[in-house]
Design a protein around this nucleic acid. Sequence first.
DNA 1: GGACCTTTGAAGCCG
DNA 2: CGGCTTCAAAGGTCC
Length: 459
Amino acid sequence: MWEPPTPPTSSVTSSSSTIPHRPIPLSLSVAQDKDWLLIRTKMPVCIWPESCLLGCALHDPGGSKFQPPMSGLMMYNNEPFAQPPPAHMGIPPVHIDPKTGLPRPSMYAYPPPGQFPPSLYSPDLSQVQWRGPHYPISSGAFSGAAYPPSLVNSSPLSRFGPPGLFPPPGLHPGMPHPGLMSPGSKPEGAISAHSQDRNMLDQGSNSNSGNPPEDKKKNHIKKPLNAFMLFMKEVRAQVVAECTLKESAAINQILGRRWHALDRAEQAKYYEMARKEKELHMQLYPGWSARDNYASHTKKKRKKKDGTPSKDCSNPKKCRARYGLEQQNQWCKPCRRKKKCIRYRVDEEGNEYFIDGDVEGLSDSLATEDSAHDSDSMTGSPMHSVTSDDAFSTPSKSMCHNSPSIRTRTEFHDDIPGLNVDEEHTGDLDMTVKMEDLEVTITSTPRKSLPFNTNIPVT
DNA sequence: GGACCTTTGAAGCCG
DNA sequence: CGGCTTCAAAGGTCC
């Protein structure tokens, strides 16, 4: 049976209640790498999650895998989960009972309702109107007047989300579903999407017809959206509206956390939607395989791959190969980003060698960046991170309210005005970081005994 | 203009 | 079979 990981001990305390309501870059990721302590902020934290419009992901005790109150696992009610969650998310996928067509109960428990403010998890969800019956859920991807009624149900909850949110502007019934169109193609009026898509498929199987590259582009049949993608489509607009962010990468981080915070039943809806999507997709395109799309984007992906290696680093994932996924904290930053490994080298004679550990000039940024990351805490590695989570495996460039993203000790010093870090303390296991209106005290026990305390008195 | 970033989930690929 | 990779959406950012 799947067992939730035990989070490291940590605590965040606020000693004041008079601070103006504003998200502050308080989310600290503390990790211990080699012989020194790592600290970094990844995301601004709202200390008033209950009233914050961004209550979203910015505070996120529910979203974080490392919040002590969660007893190691986000729980949203007392009902047990029946299925283990996807390894990466800690929330089980909702498995649909093939007999009943309904989601099976889960064996994992959510916290009792009210344990955390609703806004903490997903303030918007209460506002998201699931109008009309939820089941059967339409596969909005293929809904529309042009589709055979047998293939399209009339539920208002479509791939485009609830009425009012979807379909998106410019899309009307009868239009081909954008998700099924090639990236470059645009809807061409009320053409039968079904027949058009069928043509696309047929043409796709006949690569000799017409201009091959253009046909390939036109014939591209996209994958059916999974549950999370459907969720994103629906909630994205709301998150964007609530948050000043516009960068999708950051938005998606929030969405990822909201997905985690989503009620089990709510997630079930999306899993069901995704299942319907897939079923309908299979009906519409019996011969289609995800493999087809692999080929259509080969050029793009190859370019990615080819661009990575160079003479002195033919393998872009040397750290991956050397350390494996279990020790991603050991990877250099480029490897973590699937880019050129900077530790793996080939000398002039062609001899391969690997710089294990810090590279001159890179030690701070690399080691710190790497070690502050996620999976270790989940996998039992010595590394610990207070906010360690997959959602922040790499810092986003733009976070809400312009919070600094502290990536390295050096950057930590440089990026935050008023921040004072005793350099010598960074080599110790205790440190105090002082900001203009914030004092962060971080304590840690030695590496091999890892209860971790993070006290953040806000002054 | 295209790749990247970022998220989760599904599916293909590969050893 | 497990681990890894790719792709799906989105739009700002970067080169």
